[in-house]
Design a protein around this nucleic acid. Sequence first.
RNA 1: GCGGGUGUAGCUCAGUGGUAGAGCACUUCCUUGCCAAGGAAGAUGUCGCGCGUUCGAAUCGCGUCACCCGCUCCA
Length: 593
Amino acid sequence: MSTDAKNNTALMEKIVSLCKRRGFIFQSSEIYGGCGGVWDYGPLGAELKRNLRTAWWNAMTREREDVLGLDASILMNPAIWKASGHVDTFADLMRECSLTNKRVRADHVDPQDGVIMNYTGAQAPTGWKLDRVISVLMKKGEHIESLRKRVRTLIASNAGEAAGKPEEIELLGEAKGDTVEGSVDFHPETGGALGPARPFNLMLKTYLGPTATEDDVTYLRPETAQAIFAQFKNVFDSSRMKVPFGVCQIGKAFRNEVTPKNFTFRSREFEQMELEFFIKPDEAVEIISGEVAQWSENADLSEPQPNWGWDMWHRYWVAQRTRFYEGIGLGGVLEYYWQTPDDLAHYARACVDILCDFPFGTEELEGIAARGSFDLTAHQTASGKTQEVFDEDLKNAAAKLTNEQKEALIQKRLAAEQAKVKGEPMPEADVRAWFERLFKGNYVPHVIEPSAGLDRMALAIIANAFNETEKTDEKGKKEVITVLRLHPRVAPIKVGVFPLLKNKPELVAKAREVYALLKKHMNVFYDETASIGRRYARQDEVGTPFGITIDFDTLGEKGPELQDTVTLRHRDGGEQERVKICDLLPKLLAAVS
RNA sequence: GCGGGUGUAGCUCAGUGGUAGAGCACUUCCUUGCCAAGGAAGAUGUCGCGCGUUCGAAUCGCGUCACCCGCUCCA
């Protein structure tokens, strides 16, 4: 491991340790030895998550006119997961390469010719040993030395650092095996023998009903999005909304990840915050507005416009989400990755990953995808229930088009279908049928999907707020000071209230008064033990942005001007100001909301 | 899933076959005049879990679970 990587691992360990010590995050089921890939949030973690959830919910729906909330069940009719493609994608039989553990779909192995080479194991000068039979296909025309080199390289990369340099690995007990033709038992790239075909499903299966037969199988949802699609018509019909509008949801999702890792970053149970923002197809926008706005570097994305097509809406949501992250203190550590056509799923038109700096690397916080009408159309087809909306503006505008104008639109779309890089072009008859419905004002909405992970967000917040400095006191004793520089809005505790001394009843009584005053409005922590400095430090470590100290001036010892004023201490920098008790609440509320 | 590593007090760790330890944290009391002060007393561990070897296991062996690292996976 490089020095950087080691430092980052050490940093991550400190963060994990702080999270446990101060009650942010615990290992699930710890007293029973834990449970792989799931985590519990302690008192402070629960507050932090709640603050993030509230910030998101407010930004996405309460502060907007065009987005509504939903809270759907985790268990759903399994037909939803068949329609969405989740069952098929994950129910494939997979085979694993015995050399590299690379997986391939069992039905996607190309037949190969060659000679099977067998080894009884391998060893390295580092003392590392592999004690298992290795079978590799020496492809027709391949030189034995080239095969050996390949095997050594693959073994070394799979074994990690323990095996040392590939060229020093010794292959043991080489023996020539059978000659095969058209064999599908070897990995097409590595040549390693493939293991048995096994189902590989990332969805957590369960049974609805006590009989637990295969007929009762359903899944814990692997994403919250599908519930929004499945309830689209109900929300639309019950809310009097018009496209464009969105439906958002916060909730748990479950994936049987192969390797949960990086603390809470990739876990098997996690919380998603997703918005499905439904928009008109570009053709509808063009008919109504006469044009579709083109994006450029200096495009104004602040207010949605009627002539926005999917591209503008997509970029608008990227900008909106960026603003959100800035508002919770992550503005400085974001990166963006625009997926290339190769990365994109066939149904997606564009997808931006919002990445964030973590100690273990720059990783995805949120994905913002333009998914076309893929999801609603899939549910329409599978359920047999129309997911179309009727758009009167569109019908009226279309009625004014000449036949030539209509045909021009159809021709433009047909050309676009032919130019598609991924997926099959839509047959002309289907395109014409679709336009037929469109000209009457009917279409299945398209969608922009910003999908964020709450647990990742919480981890990003903690990791980026984590700050350690070394301090030397008067006696020359060095100590490490830890401060979580959390944005006041997300901090689990907003303010600490301290009497300067605990053996002066007047100070304690006044401090309890201030505590009671603030507690109704925010999470406040009262502490009278240990020295004032230590109490400040304890709160710094959990990111409490403010500290209030009740001292003798508060009691009026230095005269009436200072009576009923307190010291307000700021976490970052430790500067202090004198504030009247009656001014505290408005001042603090402004800072934390 | 593969390979490597780790697991001892709340945290960080020492302890290599013979009575479980330190620092910090914690509790109580005294003291305290703004940034991890001091004093006194105290509590805290089936040494991840299970099986085995042994007169005796935190220590050795096997298994298992969890976490970390590297692969792999990640619509």
